[in-house]
């Protein structure tokens, strides 16, 4: 029950999904859709579990008065507030829930995302300092592509956009294809080992 049943479930579901891929019959398609629906429902339950651990971690900080415990109040407060608002007002346009989403979450997401502009600059600087042949190649390709995408590149030398395009569609494509094929083989191999129970660390107990 503890070890064999999970392995059996994994095997049966894995093989079923592989077989399903090759069957266009409506029964098979219906099965696929049902599994995807179940997938979302099970995920929703796991969100409750996850949120439970989040509360546990922050509650422990508050009760032990650990360093920065005051911020944990903000997390738990924000969580409880969002849940209350969501279940009271619903999620339609114009509700307080959606307002919070639009004016608090979206700006926070967008701002975190935009930090990349600063970090990409520091990463470029790091690449500039590297003194290996590989790093130099990376840098040259990056500079050509950067210049190729802005008008300044064209003014510098009108052939730069063409060269950038050529790098993208030839050497870059070659590297991508090589990686993708290798990754594909690795993915299938890992998935197979999991379905067959060769890799089973997810059920605990190691070997």
């Amino acid at each position: 029950m503890r070890r064999q049943l999970p392995l059996a479930i994994c095997f049966v579901m894995g093989v079923s999904m592989v077989v399903q891929f090759f069957i266009p019959h409506r029964v098979s398609q219906e099965f696929y859709r049902t599994i995807l629906d179940w997938y979302r429902i099970v995920f929703a339950f796991s969100l409750v579990l996850g949120t439970g651990t989040l509360i546990k971690v922050h509650w422990a900080k508050i009760s032990k008065k650990s360093k920065g415990w005051q911020y944990s109040i903000i997390t738990i407060g924000g969580l409880v507030f969002m849940l209350a608002v969501g279940f009271i007002t619903g999620i339609q346009e114009g509700t307080l829930f959606m307002k919070i989403f639009e004016y608090v979450e979206v700006p926070l997401e967008a701002t975190m995302f935009s930090l990349l502009a600063f970090y990409i600059a520091s990463a470029a600087y790091r690449a500039f300092r590297a003194r290996t042949v590989e790093a130099t190649l990376l840098l040259i390709a990056a500079v050509v592509l950067m210049l190729g995408r802005i008008p300044f590149g064209y003014y510098l030398w009108h052939k730069i956009p063409g060269i950038a395009e050529w790098i993208l569609t030839n050497p870059n494509m070659a590297a991508k294809r090589g990686i993708v094929i290798g990754v594909g083989l690795g993915m299938i191999s890992t998935a197979l080992k999991i379905i067959l129970g060769i890799e089973r660390s997810y059920i605990g107990g190691g070997k």
Partner: peptide, 12 residues
């Protein structure tokens, strides 16, 4: 705040 609100958002 971001963590708390977004965790609640996804549950709802």
């Amino acid at each position: 705040l971001f963590v708390g609100l977004s965790a609640g958002y996804f549950l709802v």
